[in-house]
C-alpha cells in the first residue's frame, strides 16, 4: 500500500473533527430534550415503513446511556457510522499532531467500496423493514 504525507488542510480537518466530537459529547445532556422536538420521519409518516436511517436518534440516545445492544437494534449501520465518527475524532488530532502519513486508496478499490456502501445501506434498510422498527 502507498502512503502520502498529510496536507496542512487535512491537519486542520483533523482538529475540527476532534472539536466537533468533543462538542457533541459535551452537549449530551441536551439530547434527550431534543428528541420530541426533532421532526418526525416524513417517509415513515407517508408509507408506514421506516426509512434507511430511521432509529438513528434513538440509537444515539441508547448509546449515550450505554445500551449498546439496544442501539444496534435500532439501526446497526448508523451505530457503526457513529462509532467510526467518534473513533476518528479520537485518532485524527493525534494523527495530525504526529504528522503520520495517510494511506492512498487506489482508484481500482473505489468501485467495490462504493458497491459495499450501497449494499450496506440496502441490507440495513431491509433489517429495519423486517424488524418493523
Amino acid at each position: 500500500m502507498k502512503w502520502r504525507a498529510l496536507r496542512s488542510e487535512e491537519r486542520q480537518l483533523a482538529w475540527i473533527w476532534g472539536m466537533s466530537a468533543v462538542s457533541a459529547v459535551l452537549l449530551a445532556p441536551l439530547w434527550p430534550r431534543l428528541l420530541p422536538l426533532l421532526p418526525r420521519c416524513a417517509f415513515h409518516r407517508l408509507t408506514g415503513h421506516p426509512c434507511p436511517t430511521c432509529g438513528t436518534t434513538r440509537a444515539a440516545l441508547a448509546l449515550l446511556h450505554g445500551h449498546v445492544i439496544d442501539a444496534i437494534a435500532f439501526n446497526p449501520l448508523m451505530v457503526l457510522l457513529g462509532v467510526a465518527f467518534m473513533a476518528g475524532a479520537l485518532v485524527a488530532p493525534f494523527w495530525a499532531l504526529a504528522r503520520l502519513p495517510l494511506p492512498v486508496i487506489p482508484r481500482t478499490a473505489w468501485r467495490p467500496l462504493r458497491i459495499a456502501a450501497i449494499v450496506a445501506i440496502l441490507v440495513n434498510w431491509a433489517y429495519l423493514l423486517l424488524s418493523g422498527r
Partner: peptide, 23 residues
C-alpha cells in the same frame, strides 16, 4: 435516504439549539 439523518445534522444547527434551550 432519510429524514432522521438530516434531523441529526440539524441538531448541530442553531435552529435545534433554539428548541433545546427553550425546552
Amino acid at each position: 435516504l432519510c429524514c432522521t439523518c438530516l434531523a441529526v445534522a440539524l441538531f448541530f444547527s442553531g435552529a435545534a439549539l433554539v428548541s433545546a434551550i427553550t425546552g
